[in-house]
């Protein structure tokens, strides 16, 4: 799952966010905001007008950018693009599903924990080992 390819070590990497307005504003206050020369930001504010396509594009962009080490994504937003989040399996950038103001964190939806659950359930059915 965690690919054992060469680990990219970086001296200065960014934290990116795909979340609701208050979460993004809060983390920008903590100093994580970055705007490059082409006016590309390291965050996407998700509101009622944001389309799934925009979220997908942002997720793909943040997970392929070499200067990003952590991608924070609100769990309810991750649920909209679950197929993409579940298929991602690299250690860096690390994808973290975080709670949002209106949607508390649910471990049952977390991509990592659901993989673990699947492994243990198939194992217990197949061999009765765990």
């Amino acid at each position: 799952m965690a690919g054992k390819a060469q680990i990219p070590t970086k001296n200065s990497a960014l934290i990116s966010m795909i979340a609701d307005e208050d979460t993004v504003v809060g983390f920008l206050l903590a100093g994580v905001g970055n705007v490059d020369l082409r006016r590309k930001t390291n965050y996407l504010i998700v509101d009622s007008k944001t389309t799934v396509k925009q979220i997908e594009d942002a997720f793909k962009e943040f997970t392929t950018r070499e200067d990003i080490a952590i991608v924070m994504i609100s769990q309810y937003v991750a649920n909209m693009i679950r197929f993409l989040v579940d298929s991602y399996n690299k250690p860096i950038p690390a994808i973290l599903e975080i709670p949002s103001k209106d949607h508390p964190y649910d471990p049952a939806h977390d991509s990592v924990l659901s993989r673990v659950k699947n492994l243990f359930s198939t194992e217990s059915v197949a061999s009765g080992r765990y």
Binding site: K10, S12, A13, V32, G33, R39, N42, I70
Partner: peptide, 14 residues
């Protein structure tokens, strides 16, 4: 929010 070119004040080291 500041949309001018600026780098993050808080970053990470891997």
């Amino acid at each position: 929010l500041d949309m001018k070119n600026h780098s993050a004040a808080t970053s990470l080291r891997v």
